[in-house]
Design a binder for these strands. Structure first.
Length: 400
DNA sequence: CATCCACAGGAAGATCTGGTAG
DNA sequence: CTACCAGATCTTCCTGTGGATG
């Protein structure tokens, strides 16, 4: 019997495609970062006071998604920590921990303190954090990645406190590295936070297609078995990603998913058609994911938009609201206000499921011009996930 | 050239959920 | 049990506005 299990496991372990698929994951930090030597040098220079035991300047890092900001930062910090044991660094992705409470909770977790998910006053967490830091008396670097994502909903309160933390501690122990891919973000900051955070600045330019190819090549040598990927496939992935502002993460995702598709089909080579397929799959997954996690009325609005766009190409907020309201009535549910629906539409636009542009129709008012920006199938696929109530409604409406 | 539509979108706060602490 | 906390969602009330139209 057990040989059946061994057989299956053997199949899984011995891929005909991958040597080590981890290398293509977006959070993998390679030891070779092509075309980023300049940035590594600059960041190391800025942080070099650490080695002598003094506090380096706060750093602000700009660059679009997938330009190597996170990889370079982690790479440099890891190397510095190896060279001196008087240093510790905490890396927080603010998109994942997007409230002041959660940021502080994960900082405390780095310090070995388990904090309840909710219930405590935020100020208590902050006090705990500072007092432990003080007791440890160790040079500390705090990295806030995608720092812009908290600012919008929760302001720069925490950021302000963090930049002042050394005054509370009575000794200079903490430096902050802020990473953002939104250039406009800085304008939203309080002037005091801005000047304190921006003591040093570092800019990561996007990669061009050639550079993306180098990156893909250097990774695939170790990620794939020999002869699995050829130049054409790599060029195609690079070209797609270059078109989207030189996003290396995108390029790696494409290559990885294309390879997974090839593997699933039992092939031993990744072909160009797999890359096209990967692009569709990635997009579908992204759309389905954001739609599935929408709040209830967000889903209802989404259905209203789908319904309307079958009749006309472009819709307005008012039209969507009318359809949405009749949908709610049909389900015998309370509807939310127009004001709220207006916000929901803006949120849908921000995640890229729809495109909503503010236009003035002169005498006929000012509104949003709404157009679907993703395939209806992907959206419905996402809507149907994990919500039976919505499921029935879709079944009912699209049944005619 | 002023008017006025159909909303945009800011501000403040209410309500609810899911939690802690004593 | 009561008192309180953070965060998400939503409401109430509000002022602002681009440009076709009369």
């Amino acid at each position: 019997m057990s040989e059946i299990i061994d057989e299956v496991l053997k199949d899984i372990n011995e891929s005909k495609i991958f040597r080590n698929r981890e290398i293509l994951r977006p959070d993998y930090i390679p030891e070779e970062l092509p075309h980023r030597h300049e940035q590594i040098r600059s960041l190391t220079r800025i942080l070099s006071p650490l080695i002598k035991g003094s506090r380096p300047s706060n750093v602000f890092i700009y660059g679009l998604t997938g330009t190597g900001k996170t990889a370079v930062t982690k790479f440099v910090l890891n190397s510095l920590v190896k060279k001196s044991n008087g240093i510790q660094f905490f890396y927080i992705n603010v998109r994942h921990e997007d409230t002041p409470y959660r940021v502080l909770a994960s900082l405390l977790e780095y310090l070995g303190i388990r904090v309840p998910r909710t219930g405590l006053p935020t100020s208590d967490l902050y006090r705990q954090f500072t007092s432990i830091l003080k007791a440890k008396n160790k040079m500390t670097l705090v990295v806030f990645d995608e720092i812009d994502s908290m600012l919008k909903n929760h302001g720069d309160d925490l950021l302000y406190k963090m930049t002042r933390i050394n005054e509370y501690l009575g000794s200079s122990l903490v430096s902050i590295i802020g990473i953002t891919n939104d250039v406009k973000f800085v304008e939203m900051l309080d002037a005091r936070v801005k000047s304190s955070l921006g003591e040093e600045e570092l800019i990561f330019p996007p990669y061009n297609a050639e550079q993306l190819k180098d990156i893909l090549k250097s990774r695939s040598e170790r990620a794939f078995l020999e002869g699995v990927v050829n130049d054409e496939v790599i060029s195609l992935c690079a070209a797609f990603a270059a078109r989207e502002h030189g996003d290396a993460r995108r390029a790696l995702d494409l290559l990885r998913v294309a390879a997974e598709i090839a593997e699933r089909l039992g092939e031993t080579k990744v072909k160009e058609q797999h890359v096209y397929e990967a692009r569709r799959e990635l997009e579908k997954d992204r759309v389905a994911e954001v739609v599935a996690t929408l709040p209830f009325h967000g889903k209802m609005v989404m259905i209203a938009i789908i319904l309307l766009s079958k009749k006309q190409k472009s819709l307005t907020t008012g039209e969507v609201y009318d359809v949405y309201k009749s949908l709610c009535k049909r389900m015998k549910l309370e509807s939310v206000t127009l004001r709220r629906v207006s916000d929901i539409i803006s949120e849908l636009d921000m995640v890229g499921v729809i495109s909503a542009k503010v236009v003035s129709k002169g005498r006929y008012g000012k509104t949003k011009e709404i157009v679907l920006a993703s395939s209806i199938e992907s959206i419905i696929y996402g809507l149907k996930k994990e919500d039976s109530e919505i499921n029935e409604l879709i079944q009912e409406i699209l049944g005619d």
